[in-house]
Nucleic acid binder design. Structure first.
Lengths: 139, 139
DNA sequence: GTCTCTGCAAAGCATTTGCAACTGC
DNA sequence: GCAGTTGCAAATGCTTTGCAGAGAC
């Protein structure tokens, strides 16, 4: 049952982690792949995916499953919320503290055993906001 | 820009909507397809997907993109939260009122123009909770 | 030396799309 | 009758996986 496998810090794994933390712009797998490829040209996309999973299990990064998009990865493993641009998909950290009391409101009112919660804000980043304003003005 | 298309209430579209609302258990596309197929054996999966999108645009249903799962559909278009079982994927409504004030906390602290938010609880449904308890006791 | 990890390529899976025939309105 | 819609099938896009060789410890 328990995974007794010893994980090795391979060059690929190390570079992937470094690139995720470099800007911490919540990149998706393909962006991580492209960035890592500049340093390790022979790396494969499969290796990137496998390492992302391992790094999540190790608690080094966290995997974000936000609405309407592919998985994204966060170099900061600590729980926090995000805001996603509906125009371009850009993801920022949401400057708001975790609301653990939200779960308390559910005790006794649901048959579920509560584990946690995810909160995601949606919005428009400055670039997309400006673009839409121009578009509206032009139309 | 505006979609002037007139939507027709075809038999397929009507049956799909009826089946979504029949139990309102937040079914995914494949479950809707299987249910509708019992009444319209010649319907195709593509038609189901196309109609789900149209019904969302019409505001008849809402599309739920919850973490780690395929899209699900809710026959109640009104905004509300959900709780998802991490064991089996079952989705229930969360008995908690919408927290619109959450968005107020972000004004002035983010460069994003805020549009909305999604809140999803995770947990274990009674069946999966029982199963894990048994498993733990046995192991 | 062993056991994990890698690169490659193929497969998997949910969803989308092109197209000719069909059907609400 | 016309434009929206359907069924079919192929394509798409992200992610996973099988396998033989390579490399970390």
């Amino acid at each position: 049952m328990a995974t007794d496998k010893k994980t090795r810090m391979t060059q690929q794994r190390r570079v992937i982690l470094e690139e995720i933390r470099r800007y911490n712009n919540h990149p998706a797998a393909d962006e991580i792949y492209e960035r890592v490829r500049k340093r390790l040209p022979r790396i494969s996309l499969g290796t990137v995916y496998r390492n992302l999973e391992v790094l999540c299990e190790l608690g080094e990064i966290q995997c974000l499953v936000l609405s309407g998009a592919m998985k994204r990865y966060d170099g900061v493993a600590k729980k926090h919320y995000h805001i996603r641009c509906v125009g371009c998909g850009r993801v920022d950290d949401a400057p708001i503290a975790p609301l653990n009391e939200l779960e308390d409101d559910l005790y006794g009112t649901t048959v579920f055993e509560i584990i946690g919660h995810n909160l995601e804000f949606t919005g428009l980043c400055p670039e997309c906001s400006r673009q839409r304003a121009q578009h509206k003005a032009a139309g």
